[in-house]
């Protein structure tokens, strides 16, 4: 019917507009990783590597001046950029693992608790999520410094204090994600396992854990993403350690070069490859065993959107 198809076309166009709005900035960012310094800036420049110009001399790079790939090598050879990315990735990975483990334990414990006992824990969990990060950051800074005054083996401000801050926030997040699935699962499957002679440990290993896997993967990915690009908390508790967002924010003061675009583009490409690889693996294992849509696939779909 024409009415229906017209409405359908309208929605398709609308969806297209939304996607353009979401992804156009990213595309522009990637495109400008290949942007040359302006002609005016290059007047009188003698070298072969245009990108060796100091940041305040490269002129206007927000307009297209021509194609170059030199920003990629400039970015990768920058003395502060790559180490900061590695530091951020290490913290994010560790935070994701620790937070997911803690979140899993908390989810299992809280989901089966009596409401009266659970309520205070719930409040604590939600507090870490809803209290403005700046408040947590200031409090963490004071706490960490004071703690080191009293407990000598507590680490100095730096890598470990950033990690602790990230774990606190992400454990709450992971707990919520995993508990939602755990509660949704109900306990009949566990009862069925008990009924068939499987004790608590093997029931967890063979039934509960595999069923929670999609939520565990999702919360690990979420934790990684959140802590990788978190600025406020690390900025307060970093000491002399620099994470990638901290380096970027301080670079803004001197003017950002397309080298930043280049590194962001590399990270985007790596992420895209990883996500597509995981999706392909999941699809293959799914089509081999079942035709029904699996929760892992859908939560991963959510992750890509995220």
């Amino acid at each position: 019917m024409p009415r229906v198809s017209r409405a359908k076309a309208g929605f398709s166009v609308w969806a297209g507009v939304v996607f353009v709005f979401l992804y156009l900035p990213i595309a522009v960012m990637a495109l400008f990783a290949f942007n040359k310094p302006s002609e005016a800036a290059l007047v009188g420049f003698q070298g072969t590597d245009w990108c060796a110009l100091p940041p305040d001399k490269i002129g206007n790079v927000s307009v297209w001046n021509g194609f170059t790939t030199c920003w990629f090598s400039a970015g990768l050879h920058d003395p502060s950029y790559v180490p900061a990315i590695i530091t951020s990735a290490e913290i994010a990975a560790l935070a994701a693992i620790i937070a997911t483990c803690l979140g899993l334990c908390a989810a299992l414990a809280l989901a089966r608790m009596k409401t009266k006992i659970r309520a205070p824990f719930d409040v604590l969990v939600y507090l870490t999520l809803v209290v403005p990060e700046i408040v947590v950051a200031v409090a963490s800074l004071i706490f960490f410094v004071q703690l080191r005054n009293h407990v000598p083996f507590f680490p100095q401000l730096g890598f470990w204090t950033i990690l602790i801050g990230q774990v606190v926030f992400n454990a709450s997040l992971a707990m919520l994600v995993i508990r939602a699935r755990f509660v949704g699962m109900g306990d009949t499957l566990e009862e069925a396992a008990y009924d068939l002679g499987s004790g608590p440990v093997s029931t967890f290993r063979q039934v509960t854990f595999p069923r929670l896997m999609p939520a565990i993967v999702a919360s690990a990915l979420l934790s990684f993403t959140f802590s990788f690009d978190d600025y406020v908390l690390p900025a307060f508790t970093n000491g002399t350690t620099n994470t990638w967002p901290i380096v970027l924010y301080s670079a803004v003061r001197f003017g950002i070069t397309p080298a930043v675009n280049a590194l962001a583009t590399i990270m985007l490409a790596l992420t895209a490859v990883a996500v597509i690889a995981v999706a392909l693996v999941l699809r293959r294992s799914r089509s081999r065993t079942t035709s029904a849509p699996d929760a892992v696939g859908s939560s991963l779909g959510g992750m890509i959107g995220f």
């Binding site: 009949t188 009862e191 069925a192 008990y194 004790g199 069923r211």
Partner: peptide, 21 residues
């Protein structure tokens, strides 16, 4: 406990393990 009883149940919702064949 249920896992030490020589009794088995057919559940109302079947409770089949969805991740197993």
């Amino acid at each position: 406990p249920p896992y030490r009883r020589n009794v088995n149940t057919v559940f109302q919702s079947y409770a089949l393990f969805p991740h197993m064949s």
